[in-house]
Design a protein around this nucleic acid. Structure first.
Lengths: 153, 153
DNA sequence: CTACTTGCAAATGCTTTGCAGGAGA
DNA sequence: TCTCCTGCAAAGCATTTGCAAGTAG
């Protein structure tokens, strides 16, 4: 299976999910999804506007709402004031984030299964102690990314 | 040492931190800090306005900015659009969050040292693989809190 | 044909800021 | 008495929405 076959499958799956909630997979939505796939990291509305200048911001916002309710896109928690979005983990792979506190960029990292096993078990225990029903978790590492660590050269 | 002694120490430490950045520990700021101590969980601006109706929102926002730059308060990442704030971990204890995806409430949980040791080591490894310099981490568990799990009775 | 989509512009609502008076050291 | 703090009102700005025209099925 080639890379583009995999991408095609992804698009078909997304279309199905949209159909489930009576929504269509239009060119604007597909352009947005393509961007998310290409970037492979959470993007902000600003990123979207830069990459897709022909897509009005209001449409981008509406697409994101629709894609979220279809379970295709997820809004992630950020430390700054800008909302960021990424493909739902069901369409990609469970991962965590390296958040640069200087420039706000977010990188995805895939954890080892051993790590996940430990974390999940421990978190389930902590949650249970508070009568909390866990559904998922997210781990963010805050720090400085490569670019920001470089002295201005 | 009694509980109130400990709280007094905390207030003195906060005052010192504010002084460092040429800021004063006024009654409005103290009221805000007292609320954060009392709640012991991240609070939103709305929570603050409800608890301290005499404190104008604009002052609350300004206090939060000042307290953040003094390293007393931290703005946490949330999944919804409302900013939430809590005392900096240096003043409390390292902890993680149980975030209710239904009502938005956030609970603090303190992890075991074994858990923290494992997580820190693993995360440092992941970060290093991307040339990322980690400074801290945050773990959030998403799910349903006790109140929201209850059938409406 | 009927229902979902889109663009534009206007509205919303959280958050920030200018300014003038008040207060801490 | 110099600097920081506060309140109010006005401004900013990311996000949402009304409406009318476009388009998929």
């Amino acid at each position: 299976m080639t890379l583009s076959d995999a991408t095609d499958d992804l698009h078909r799956l997304i279309e199905t999910r949209l159909r489930r909630v009576d929504q269509r997979y239009t060119s604007g939505r597909r352009a947005l999804v393509d961007l998310l796939i290409k970037e492979g990291r959470p993007v902000s509305i600003g990123d979207i506007a830069d990459a897709l200048p022909e897509l009005p911001r209001s449409s981008a916002y509406r697409h994101l709402v629709d894609l979220q309710s279809a379970g295709v896109v997820r809004r992630i928690a950020t430390s700054d004031e800008f909302a960021r979005f990424e493909l739902d983990e069901h369409l990609t792979e469970h991962h965590h984030h390296l958040i640069c506190t200087t420039c706000g960029q977010v990188l995805d990292v895939t954890p080892s299964t051993a790590f996940e096993r430990t974390v999940s078990r421990q978190l389930a225990g902590m949650a249970a102690a508070h009568g909390f029903e866990p559904t998922s978790h997210q781990v963010d590492v805050l720090g400085t990314c490569t670019s920001c660590a470089q002295p201005a050269s």
